Simulated scan of single mutants.
Amino acid sequence: MGLDDCARETRGLAAVVADPDASYDARLTAACGRVEAAVESWSSWSARCRNAP
């Protein structure tokens, strides 16, 4: 995943957060998980690039 993927997932999270009915439902938990996975994936890719010879 790249930075664009992180941004897309973050926009998706923002859309769920804006829905008053989603404050305590599975959609919010799922959206948070997708953002977390995207950021972790990007972070590990970025670290590998910085450490490459």
Rank of each mutant, 00 (worst) to 15 (best):
A7C: 06
A22D: 13
A31S: 07
A14Y: 00
D25I: 11
M1Y: 09
V17S: 02
S44D: 10
R48M: 07
A14H: 01
R8Q: 13
S46Y: 11
T29V: 13
D4P: 08
E40M: 12
R27Q: 09
A14V: 00
D4V: 10
V17N: 02
D19N: 12
N51R: 06
L28Y: 08
C6I: 03
T10D: 05
T10R: 09
R34H: 08
N51K: 05
D5L: 06
L13E: 01
D5F: 05
W45R: 14
A38P: 02
M1E: 15
D25Q: 08
P53C: 04
W45N: 14
R27T: 12
C6M: 01
R8M: 12
R50T: 01
P20E: 14
S43M: 13
T29N: 08
S43P: 05
W45Y: 12
A15N: 02
L28R: 14
C32A: 07
C32R: 12
W42H: 05
R11L: 13
A38L: 02
S41C: 09
A52Q: 12
S23C: 10
S44K: 11
E40R: 15
L13I: 00
R34E: 05
C6L: 01
A18G: 04
A30M: 08
A47E: 15
R11E: 04
C49M: 12
R27W: 09
E40Q: 13
W42F: 11
P53Q: 03
P20V: 09
P20Q: 12
S43A: 14
A7T: 14
